[in-house]
Design a protein around this nucleic acid. Structure first.
Lengths: 187, 187
DNA sequence: TACTAGTGGAACATCGATGTTCCACTACGG
DNA sequence: CCGTAGTGGAACATCGATGTTCCACTAGTA
């Protein structure tokens, strides 16, 4: 069957996906959740989880990669090199926001820090974008690139917080997030 | 001896304090850390930890209260009713920043959420302060009170992040944090 | 000096999460 | 209809964290 090299068959891919999605949901709520909880959330048996990810660490690694791939895609969709840097940063903010609380998972997990490499191409692209904003005058040079990047994440975290606790609609949360971002980076 | 009602003797108070401080440090780095790690960090035996906090949950509760007390004190020191609301919010930001990463602990712990009551007097005082800012014209009314409060935490988180990773000095991190805060809330 | 509070460590029992094995069941394509 | 991929569940072994008990040690103090 050569399962390892070829793409997995439909059923297997679907089950694998279901487990990863459930893991995102459950682990976001409780990073120390047991595999049994994840299996239940995915609607599969605990045995099946072990069939796809023999060890917990492997599930976490795959999960990290799963989320990471989404980040790379989202960053790509934001077309960082089009328009002014401030506009591109706004698009990036929207794209990341759509990924949901997923990101807080890997973002806060110290064990997966190596996967979330600060020097990854994506992170560098974001820093470059902010540097471009410093030069094209659409981002306040008084704030360092690293600070603006961290600020972006912090604002997203707040926005997710607001929309999760149910006080605010997703749309309003994103709107406030974008307005705050623009105000801060405005030169 | 009536240990329970009277204040604890010097030695006991000191040991208790050492355990709580160590717990803050260790649990901030890894929320799932074992009691043995906390004991080691505190420089006491694991048995001693159990002597002060028979169950892990009791340690977490005491820890939460420990941190919470610091927040209440910091809020008080910020003298929220003096000067303009924007000035007071700046002072509050500084006071909270000085508490360090301690706050991210309770802030992120879902199990301790009830202690961190959203409707606590302190939280209400902060929301009132922002409301005052809306009226006295020093805080942009386009941002709701809850959003500004969450924003404050988000900025603090970023600032701590920056100063922890060692790229930026504590002073510079706080400075950037305050400047960002002022820019966002400026009407 | 003797007494006591406080401590550290060894040893043990317990519990929950993890990982493994095995078997029965179901869906599905030949 | 039969064989196979995929699955669920029971049962078991293991491991680490937790909680408990007991005893020996040390620093103060009457």
């Amino acid at each position: 069957m050569d399962v390892h090299t070829a793409a997995e068959t439909g059923t297997r891919a679907r089950t694998r996906r279901a487990i990863l999605d459930a893991a995102v949901t459950v682990l976001t709520a409780d990073p120390a959740a047991a595999l049994a909880d994840i299996a239940a959330a995915a609607g599969v048996g605990r045995t099946t989880v072990h069939r796809y990810f023999p060890e917990r660490a492997e599930l976490l690694t795959a999960l990290s990669k799963h989320v990471w791939d989404q980040v790379v895609e989202a960053t790509h969709r934001a077309r960082l090199d089009e328009g002014t840097a401030a506009q591109a940063l706004g698009r990036l903010c929207q794209e990341y926001f759509d990924l949901g609380t997923v990101l807080t998972l890997v973002f806060n997990d110290p064990a997966q820090a190596e996967t979330w490499d600060e020097c990854s191409p994506t992170d560098l692209a974001v820093l470059d974008l902010i540097g471009r904003g410093h030069r094209d005058g659409t981002i306040d040079p008084a704030f360092s690139a690293a600070w603006v990047r961290d600020l972006l994440w912090a604002l997203l975290y707040s926005a997710w917080q607001q929309s999760t606790t149910g006080q605010v609609s997703r749309h309003d949360a994103l709107d406030a997030c974008l307005r705050a971002l623009r105000k801060v980076i405005a030169p």
